[in-house]
Design a protein around this nucleic acid. Sequence first.
DNA 1: ATGATTTATTAACATAGGTTCATTTTTACA
DNA 2: TGTAAAAATGAACCTATGTTAATAAATCAT
Lengths: 191, 191
Amino acid sequence: MNELLDYFKNYIPISAKIEDNLKEIVIEKKLDKGEIILSNNSMKKEHIFVVNGCLRSFYKTEAGKEYTIQFAIKNWWIGDYITLYTDEKSVVSIESLTNSTVLIIDKTKVEGFYKKYPQFEAFQRKNFEKRIATLQKRILSLLTLTALEKYNQFIENYSVFERIIPNYQIASYLGITPQSLSRARKERIKK
Amino acid sequence: MNELLDYFKNYIPISAKIEDNLKEIVIEKKLDKGEIILSNNSMKKEHIFVVNGCLRSFYKTEAGKEYTIQFAIKNWWIGDYITLYTDEKSVVSIESLTNSTVLIIDKTKVEGFYKKYPQFEAFQRKNFEKRIATLQKRILSLLTLTALEKYNQFIENYSVFERIIPNYQIASYLGITPQSLSRARKERIKK
DNA sequence: ATGATTTATTAACATAGGTTCATTTTTACA
DNA sequence: TGTAAAAATGAACCTATGTTAATAAATCAT
């Protein structure tokens, strides 16, 4: 819980009242490695803040192929943004890649919070701007880059993840097979 | 200009004062078919509202290949969300696909507007939520779908565009070649 | 430490979609 | 309305990445 407060305090003043209010709407949860915290077909609308550990959101096709949408570590948010922000039911699952601790806040509670503390609207609007830019960049990468280029870019942008996340999961984020990632890694080493 | 007011009035009350203020910060511009309104390498940060006509934002590789990021018609917004929301310089251009009329608002003016009229923060926050869901869906499509599936989905989601936009531009949005789109279209007809 | 399980690599082959180039169809405009 | 330009299609060939299967390396649990 204090991790979330510290996180907010980096960006926005948190009064004692806000603090209390936050404590009322946040639920802490410990997750085991491999535990699914949100499964597809649910209508659960919640924001997840990572206190420690590492999680991923992913989409699984009928055929069983998995595509990672996002990874999240300490101080990151993760969620199913399609369920959260549309009326469509979830196609996404979220699992914990390690033992981890997360804070969960229900969407309606967050909305109440915006109403009560308008400064959070501005804060969130700015967050969303960054997220939109990030998503836009990923779309461009998916459109334009080869497997090798995608991997190089991933390493450059997300070096934090390189040691934590197994390569086959990175491959599933880049939209390539582990074998193809292996080829890319071999190419890289050459230089 | 009235188009923008009408657009806002669908979502949010617009007082005479807001109306006047909006008029001060908005610039109307007529564009010829083919005209570039924003070119890459610029640092111009502006939001574009389409009054009529059709525009597209796109990325052009060194090799000259073009990838369409977004199309926009009447009552849609378009912009370079990477330049707008990061400190990075633009890699994106925006061109008018038809003769068109647009309204341009500078980013700093928009930010002033949020400050002055906090109800726009909430409005924009909700817009951004929808945009995030849309971008997320596109990422999933790019990751998981074949050329044919992408085209089918495009037709389903954006039938408005089907008649307005030439196929080779649709291909550049889907990340495939016109030839490949042609193959997909042939497949479709079979059924 | 050691065997079991998971992850990564390698190789051989298959294929969707790219490339090149030619042809047809559509659109624009004089 | 006819002609030039732009867009769409088609065919032949090529290549990056997928697929399958085997092996090697790393990690985990007892």
